[in-house]
């Protein structure tokens, strides 16, 4: 894909989102923030996927990636739902929403 058509632009936007999201996914400690980041990466990927399927403006967007993206969105939602439930349960039990090894004061002792 060369030239700055809509599809390419959104695909690159997707790449940028992936980068941003990944950073959030890696750097953040709070589980909910990670979940947000996870969803950002996810939609970035979908954007890349979908945009690359919309390269041929004459034919309209490719339906197959669209279908796959919808499936992906549902899966991402499902994952997020389970993770949210886990985080909440963990906060109930442990009083925090971060993994112990991600706590700043954690020095590696069990």
């Amino acid at each position: 894909m060369t030239g700055l058509d809509t599809a390419t632009l959104f695909a690159w936007c997707g790449a940028g989102l992936i980068g941003i999201g990944l950073y959030g996914f890696l750097a953040n400690r709070h589980m909910l923030r990670r979940l947000v980041a996870f969803n950002v990466v996810g939609s970035g990927i979908f954007l890349v996927f979908g945009a690359s399927g919309a390269r041929r403006a004459d034919l309209g967007p490719d339906p197959v990636p669209q279908a796959l993206i919808i499936t992906g969105i549902v899966v991402a939602l499902a994952t997020t739902a389970l993770l949210v439930a886990l985080v909440i349960r963990y906060a109930d039990l442990a009083g925090r929403a971060t993994l112990p090894e991600d706590e700043p004061g954690d020095d590696g002792k069990e």
């Binding site: 990944l22 996914f25 890696l26 400690r29 990670r34 993994l99 090894e101 991600d102 954690d106 590696g108």
Partner: peptide, 19 residues
């Protein structure tokens, strides 16, 4: 080794390694 394992368990370390 304990420390290494702990580090690898830490997502902020393991994640970048993975990526």
């Amino acid at each position: 080794i304990d420390r290494l394992e702990r580090g690898l368990r830490r997502w902020s370390t393991a994640g970048p390694v993975l990526l």
